[in-house]
Computed example of a mutant assay.
Amino acid sequence: METRGRSLVKAIVWNVIGLISMTAVGFIATGSLSAGGMMAGINTALGFLSYLIYERVWAGIRWGRHHA
């Protein structure tokens, strides 16, 4: 089973990657770094919470795991 701390670190790293890429996409789409950054920030916050909940739900599901 994965620890909560590991799930948290994975979620943070994944969302930093997403924040950078979404800021670039938002900038390209709007021509404004602040608008692109705002879009990316909102997306990152929603994605972070969704991913963290998703990981914790799956951590509690036994299906598909091999037990030694």
Rank of each mutant, 00 (worst) to 15 (best):
A40E: 04
I20Y: 04
I42L: 15
T44Y: 09
G47W: 06
A68L: 10
A35V: 03
T30A: 08
K10T: 03
M38F: 15
W63E: 13
A45I: 15
I42C: 07
M38I: 14
H67I: 05
T23S: 14
S21Q: 11
V16K: 02
T30F: 13
H66C: 05
R65V: 06
G36E: 04
A24E: 03
Y51R: 11
I17Q: 00
H67N: 10
G5H: 01
V16I: 15
A45Y: 12
G26K: 06
L49K: 04
G60D: 08
I61G: 03
G64A: 12
G41F: 13
W14P: 01
Y54Q: 12
H66Q: 12
R6G: 05
L8N: 01
L49H: 00
I17H: 04
W58F: 13
L8I: 02
A11K: 02
A40V: 01
V13C: 09
R62L: 13
I61E: 13
Y54M: 10
T30M: 09
R6N: 09
A11W: 04
Y51H: 10
F48M: 07
F27P: 00
G64K: 05
R56M: 13
S34D: 12
S32H: 11
V25G: 02
S50P: 01
K10W: 11
M1C: 01
T44H: 06
R65W: 14
L8S: 08
N15M: 08
W14E: 03
S34N: 05
M22A: 14
S32F: 09
L52E: 07
Y51G: 03
M1S: 13
S7P: 01
V25F: 15
S34A: 09
L46R: 03
S50I: 07
N43R: 01
I20L: 13
I28V: 08
F48E: 06
S7K: 05
G47D: 01
R6M: 10
G47C: 12
I61Y: 14
S50W: 12
G18N: 14
N15R: 01
G26P: 10
Y51Q: 14
R62Y: 05
G47P: 05
L52G: 02
G47Y: 04
A11M: 05
F48Y: 14
M22S: 12
A29P: 02
G60Q: 03
T44V: 10
A40Y: 09
Y54C: 04
G64Y: 10
S50L: 14
M39R: 09
W63M: 12
A35F: 08
Y54G: 00
V57L: 11
A11T: 15
A11Q: 00
I17V: 08
I20Q: 00
A35Q: 06
V57F: 13
W63N: 06
I53M: 11
V16N: 04
T44W: 07
E55K: 00
A35K: 04
N15W: 04
M39C: 11
A68W: 15
L49N: 07
